[in-house]
Amino acid sequence: YLCSFLVGFAFSELLDVNEAWINILPKTIPLRVLYFVISYLLICIGIALSNRCGLPIIPTDLFPRELSEIIKVKYSKVKVSFDVICLTITACMTGLILGHINGLGIGTVLAAFTMGKVIGLIGDEMDKHFRFVNFTQHR
């Protein structure tokens, strides 16, 4: 958990550093789509890797991973359901509190409905090439 905390802290600091220069990138529609695809795939790879190594690096993805193990349902199904429920709650709360839905773009909706499946596919591909072993149990 300490390692997870350090990774999360470093990640948040890197976000702050990158925020300073990210606004200089061109913002045409094709490039925005490219940025979305690249970030989407990087997030999916990161979550699949986090799931394989067992670290709770991303707390919002720790819950679906552990729930899928507890209820014996495939991770991708739990993840998509979790993301869609969170998206729905966010939309309802935003609509009720602000009077309109704000901050939920097509990318967010697309990611909620597809990311679990893509993470599962990437994880399955990782399993073909890598094996993660807990060093405390492997002897």
Rank of each mutant, 00 (worst) to 15 (best):
L2R: 15
H138G: 03
V17Y: 14
L14D: 08
P30S: 14
I70Q: 07
W21H: 15
L67H: 00
E125C: 11
V118Q: 02
P56E: 06
I106N: 08
F135R: 13
P59H: 04
L110G: 10
T88G: 14
M115F: 10
V133S: 12
F135M: 12
L15R: 08
F113L: 15
G99Y: 08
L41T: 14
A20V: 15
L62Q: 04
F36P: 04
L110S: 14
G95P: 03
E125N: 11
G103L: 11
A111M: 10
T136H: 14
P64H: 05
K79A: 09
G46H: 06
N51R: 01
G103V: 09
D16V: 12
L42P: 00
P64R: 01
K128S: 08
T136E: 13
T94G: 09
I29N: 08
G107A: 15
K117N: 13
A48R: 01
I97H: 12
C3S: 14
I122L: 12
C92R: 03
S4D: 05
Y40F: 15
T90C: 09
L6R: 12
K79L: 06
V73P: 00
T60I: 08
M126D: 01
K77D: 09
A91R: 04
I47E: 02
L121R: 09
T114W: 05
C44P: 00
K77A: 07
T88P: 03
L14C: 12
F11M: 10
F113S: 09
P64Y: 01
V37Y: 09
T108Y: 07
